[in-house]
Amino acid sequence: MAEDRALVDRFLDMLAAEAGASRNTLLAYRNDLTAAAATLPSLGQADAKQIGQLGPAWSELSPSTVARRSAALRRFYGFLHEEGLRRDDPSSSLPRPATERPLPRILAPHEVDAMFAAVEDLASSGRPLALRNHALLELLYGSGLRATELVSLPRGALRTGQPFLILRGKGAKERLVPISDRAFAAVEKWLPHVPAKSAYLFPGGKAHLSRVRLFQLVREMAALAGIAPDRVSPHVLRHAFATHLLAGGADLRVLQALLGHADIATTQIYTHVDTGRLVELVNARHPLATRSASS
């Protein structure tokens, strides 16, 4: 239907403009939405009951395909609801197949060290953009911030003598985020270069630095350290923050709070990344570790 095509086009325009989605990503969304539309009387007007029939209709598809199509529809209907194009969001009726979560991509500690060495070397010149990039890297890896959380930080988010900040993250949930002395120092060097009229710590364009630009900057920092840029992103640094903390002995519940995960099952993915460290921890800390096998 022409109306459905218009809604899909509007949705894809939003993904391209606000999320910086690539051409391939947009094509994948269009294909998944078109496939769903072929099963529904109307993609834009489908009710919860009609959406619920997609499960049986997709029964012969692989779990990963069903999960991908459901994710595309979930985001599509969320967009329609937020834009006031429909009163409800029927996506709760979408099938939720059980799929294995892929292990997060991370960097080794020595690779993160190499990135910091390269960025700090440039920042020592005192050039404003080099100081900005250093502050971005310190907050990304040192505090595990999401990309959106980082770029939208208010100018006065960090306060002297307060080693943390309170963020409103995913799902409008607040969490406490620790700020290291290193991050404070990097931000203090960058602050004098932030325009007085800017409401954001990292201004860009008419508002704040975009997520797409942050992604590009992080890849540039990786290249400076001799790391393949396609291995690194803001989210990879967030994964590295979590994995390296866990390897250092951090409690999983504490890590959950720091990352802002609503469900600890999301945090548990990091336990699969460093299994050697976890075995070592059990052997060293468990009460039975000091008892001999013959006891």
Score class of each variant (00 low, 15 high):
148 T>E: 13
140 L>M: 14
106 I>R: 01
107 L>T: 07
145 L>W: 02
129 L>R: 15
146 R>F: 02
105 R>N: 08
105 R>L: 02
144 G>K: 02
137 L>V: 07
154 P>F: 05
114 A>S: 14
127 R>E: 15
131 L>S: 07
108 A>S: 08
132 R>K: 13
111 E>S: 06
122 L>I: 04
138 E>R: 07
127 R>Y: 10
127 R>T: 13
130 A>N: 12
117 A>R: 14
138 E>I: 10
142 G>K: 06
114 A>I: 01
109 P>C: 03
117 A>V: 11
149 E>S: 04
109 P>W: 08
145 L>M: 13
151 V>W: 08
147 A>Y: 00
122 L>R: 15
117 A>Q: 14
143 S>V: 00
149 E>C: 05
128 P>E: 13
123 A>H: 11
122 L>S: 10
111 E>P: 01
137 L>R: 00
143 S>D: 03
150 L>N: 07
152 S>M: 05
110 H>C: 01
115 M>Y: 06
127 R>N: 12
105 R>H: 14
125 S>T: 15
105 R>C: 00
127 R>A: 15
129 L>N: 12
113 D>S: 14
153 L>V: 09
140 L>E: 01
138 E>K: 03
127 R>G: 06
125 S>R: 10
137 L>A: 04
143 S>G: 01
129 L>I: 11
111 E>M: 06
147 A>S: 14
139 L>G: 08
127 R>L: 13
108 A>M: 12
139 L>M: 13
105 R>G: 07
145 L>I: 01
124 S>K: 14
135 A>V: 10
121 D>M: 11
147 A>N: 07
109 P>D: 11
144 G>I: 00
148 T>L: 10
135 A>D: 08
115 M>E: 04
126 G>H: 07
120 E>A: 11
116 F>R: 04
122 L>G: 00
104 P>H: 00
134 H>T: 05
138 E>W: 05
126 G>Q: 07
130 A>D: 15
134 H>I: 00
119 V>F: 07
134 H>M: 12
150 L>W: 06
108 A>G: 02
154 P>L: 06
149 E>T: 01
141 Y>A: 02
148 T>W: 03
125 S>W: 10
151 V>Y: 07
140 L>N: 09
136 L>N: 06
108 A>P: 00
129 L>P: 00
135 A>Y: 08
141 Y>L: 03
136 L>K: 01
122 L>Q: 15
121 D>G: 08
103 L>A: 10
110 H>E: 15
143 S>Y: 06
148 T>Q: 14
147 A>M: 04
129 L>K: 14
104 P>A: 03
115 M>W: 02
115 M>N: 01
122 L>M: 13
127 R>Q: 15
129 L>F: 11
120 E>L: 08
145 L>T: 04
109 P>N: 10
116 F>I: 09
145 L>Q: 01
116 F>H: 03
125 S>A: 14
146 R>P: 01
124 S>P: 01
113 D>W: 09
111 E>Y: 03
122 L>H: 13
132 R>N: 07
144 G>Y: 11
137 L>H: 03
119 V>T: 14
149 E>G: 10
122 L>P: 07
117 A>N: 12
148 T>S: 15
110 H>M: 10
124 S>H: 11
104 P>K: 00
108 A>Y: 12
112 V>T: 06
123 A>V: 06
120 E>H: 12
